[in-house]
Structure formats: C-alpha cells, structure tokens
Computed example of a mutant assay.
Amino acid sequence: MTDAATPVNLTNHAYFNLEGEGAGDVLDHELAVDATHYTPVDEDLIPRGDHRPVHGGAFDLRRPTRIAEALARPDRQLAQAGGYDHNFVLRPHDGDTPRRCAVLHAPATGRSMEVLTTEPGLQVHTAGQFDGTVIGKSGTRYRAGAGIALETQHFPDSPNRPADPSPVLRPGEEHRSKTVLRFTTLG
C-alpha cells in the first residue's frame, strides 16, 4: 500500500544459459517472443516513446529463432545496444492468470524455459555489454552473449510516457503481478 502516487516497476534481472553456468554463450539457444511491437531506444538506451512493429525485421521473434541468427540481422537498434536490450510490447492482458510471452530453448541440452506473466512488457537483454570483468562461480569470465535476461515488467520509462501502461500505484490500490518461469527438458 502507498499513501501517495508511486511508480512501481519490479522485475527480475537474472541471466539464463540453459546449457549451464560457464558453458559458453547462448547464441545457439532459440528464442520466441509473443509480441507484435517493441519500443525502440535512443543512443542512451532510453525508450523513444514509439512502438515499432516487429514484422519481418530484426525484432521479429514470433517464431523460434536462433539468437545468433537474430543478432546477425542488420539493424541500427541492435548495433547501438550491442544486441537486444529492448522492451517487447506484449499482447493486452486482463486478469490474474499469466499468459505465455516467451520460450527459450537450448537444442544442445533439450532444456526449455517458458516465461508466463501478467505484465505488459518483456525486456530482452542478450548481455552484449559483458566484457569478461564479471566472473562466474566456476571461474568463467562472462563475455558478450554469456546469458540472456527475460525481464517481465512495465515498459521502461513508462512514468514519462502517458500512452504506455501506467506503473503508478495510487493510495488504496494494491500492486499485483505474477511471473512464472517453467523449465522442462526434452530428451
């Protein structure tokens, strides 16, 4: 509860590699995101405020796509962010039942992760800025693409974007959000 209007935009910033910690990069993983639009960013990676269709471009991940293939698509947005660090606009959703918004799959291990959420956005971050300074528990230096974060949330900068879903919690309201990460192994 709050006693004044308060922006609330909680997320989980965990990175995943379904081949295991220290196993290398996620470039051979396949990713599907159920979104028809994304929010382009400026040079400082701040959303510009518009929603651009994904159809046929570098952000079209509606079908499972190998991450290396997706990152190789020529696109100024990918170049300036060092890969994906963008919000995908999820289908409108009413209710408390999370809907599936993304699937990550590692063909080498058969492991898959489904992401289900009640949130309106999914920030996809392919760790393009990892430069080896962070060291994992196995002693591996994490480099670009060592993991992928799939962050369910309201759109970044949405308090300053009246057209985006509002993250503002008002007095008397209760904040509710649900995200489910479902792991399976095919094999």
Rank of each mutant, 00 (worst) to 15 (best):
187 G>L: 14
64 P>W: 02
47 P>Y: 04
64 P>K: 07
19 E>L: 01
6 T>W: 07
180 V>G: 05
85 D>F: 00
76 R>A: 15
26 V>D: 03
114 E>F: 03
66 R>P: 01
128 G>F: 09
132 G>M: 09
27 L>R: 12
22 G>I: 00
132 G>D: 09
156 P>V: 01
105 H>R: 15
151 E>F: 02
33 V>Q: 01
138 S>D: 14
76 R>I: 07
67 I>Q: 01
34 D>A: 12
77 Q>N: 04
54 V>Q: 06
146 A>I: 05
16 F>I: 01
30 E>T: 13
98 P>Y: 05
111 R>W: 12
151 E>A: 03
34 D>V: 04
87 N>A: 13
44 D>W: 07
82 G>T: 04
110 G>I: 07
166 S>H: 12
40 P>R: 09
61 L>T: 03
92 P>S: 14
163 A>R: 15
13 H>K: 03
146 A>D: 05
45 L>E: 00
100 R>W: 02
154 H>C: 08
52 R>D: 10
180 V>E: 15
120 P>M: 02
108 A>V: 06
118 T>C: 09
24 G>D: 02
168 V>F: 08
50 D>A: 10
169 L>R: 09
151 E>W: 03
167 P>G: 03
6 T>L: 11
126 T>N: 06
154 H>K: 04
73 R>G: 00
164 D>S: 13
154 H>G: 10
130 F>P: 09
90 L>T: 07
54 V>W: 05
118 T>A: 11
139 G>A: 13
23 A>K: 12
44 D>Y: 04
26 V>R: 07
161 R>A: 08
151 E>C: 07
40 P>W: 07
76 R>E: 15
113 M>R: 02
105 H>E: 07
133 T>K: 10
38 Y>V: 06
131 D>H: 04
145 G>L: 04
86 H>S: 02
185 T>L: 15
127 A>R: 06
52 R>W: 09
108 A>T: 15
104 L>R: 08
67 I>R: 01
3 D>E: 14
187 G>R: 15
104 L>E: 02
155 F>T: 02
153 Q>F: 02
25 D>T: 13
155 F>N: 06
122 L>K: 04
185 T>W: 10
148 I>M: 08
145 G>F: 04
170 R>P: 00
88 F>S: 09
77 Q>R: 05
92 P>N: 05
65 T>Y: 00
155 F>H: 13
122 L>R: 08
28 D>P: 00
112 S>K: 12
171 P>R: 11
45 L>K: 05
87 N>I: 00
24 G>S: 07
173 E>F: 11
32 A>L: 11
120 P>W: 10
53 P>V: 10
148 I>P: 09
129 Q>V: 11
30 E>W: 10
89 V>M: 06
130 F>G: 03
8 V>T: 13
107 P>D: 06
11 T>V: 12
81 A>I: 07
99 R>V: 10
